Simulated scan of single mutants.
Amino acid sequence: MNDTLLEVSGVSKSFDGFKAINNLSIQIAEPELRAVIGPNGAGKTTFMDIITGKTRPDSGHVVWGERNISLLGMSEADIANEGVGRKFQKPTVFEAQTVRQNLAMALKNPRGPLAVLLHRKTPSNAARIEGIAAEIGLTDSLTRIAGELSHGQKQWLEIGMLLAQEPRLLLVDEPAAGMTVEEREKTTDILKRAAKTRAVVVVEHDMEFVRRLDCKVTVLHEGSVLAEGSLDHVTSNPKVIEVYLGRGHA
């Protein structure tokens, strides 16, 4: 087993009496590719919100890295600096800038107004941008304005911008939504490649997309882990069929 990078243990969170997360425990290794599935209201988004510091749980622990740092109580910015990157469902790129400029702005460099003003184009930065562009399949689009890209290409660019920050954990929310079949296939390849050197957690509804990821799957239901294992293993679980697949989500 690879080393544990993130350990969520006994975490619970209620909103106005509704228990969104209920004694949730999940371990993520580094490197690892993990898919998280489950019906609407299962707690998938709240799970990511808690890891990234957007939401604070009522109880439990979220422990990070070799130094066993608690992420609870840390700001979203500090958690991001620790190496947690998150991609939301709707791509957020700088539409008026080129692909190259988007990636350059995202590179892991000193932050702050002065650092941005004094930013220099260096050979190492240029090589890093070229490498990321190749990884996300946008080498031929580096000079294009981001607003002109297709929906799928914007998703890849945003993944590239997160990779530029060199995260150890990448949380990706429903990347297949709105994509063509060809774009979905390319997206799985990008995520599988990224997961060779870091932890990548994909929250997804599209079962064919999850099957193509070919990774361990965690099924959430009512804020807890209902089943875990290969896709074939979890989709043959009677409880999973009852609460998720049987409701027409397959």
Rank of each mutant, 00 (worst) to 15 (best):
M1C: 06
M1Q: 10
L5Q: 05
V8E: 08
S9T: 14
S9Y: 04
K13E: 03
S14F: 11
D16F: 09
K19A: 14
N23G: 10
S25E: 14
A29F: 05
R34C: 14
G38E: 00
P39Y: 11
P39W: 06
A42T: 13
G43M: 13
K44D: 14
F47V: 15
T52Q: 11
G53A: 08
R56F: 04
G60H: 10
H61S: 15
V62I: 15
N68C: 10
S70A: 13
G83F: 06
G83D: 07
G83Q: 07
Q89S: 07
T98C: 08
R100Y: 14
A104L: 13
A104K: 07
M105S: 11
A106Y: 02
N109I: 12
G112E: 03
L114D: 08
L117R: 08
H119I: 00
H119L: 04
K121W: 10
T122L: 03
N125Q: 14
A127L: 10
E130C: 02
I132Q: 01
I132F: 01
A133S: 13
S141Y: 04
R144Y: 06
I145A: 09
A146M: 11
G147H: 13
G152V: 08
G152A: 11
Q153M: 15
Q155A: 07
L157V: 07
A164G: 06
E166L: 00
D173S: 11
E174T: 07
A177C: 09
M179N: 09
K186Q: 13
T188L: 03
D189H: 12
L191E: 01
K192Q: 15
K196G: 03
V201A: 05
D206W: 14
R212S: 14
K216F: 02
G223M: 11
V225S: 08
S236T: 06
V240W: 02
V243A: 08
Y244I: 12
L245Y: 09
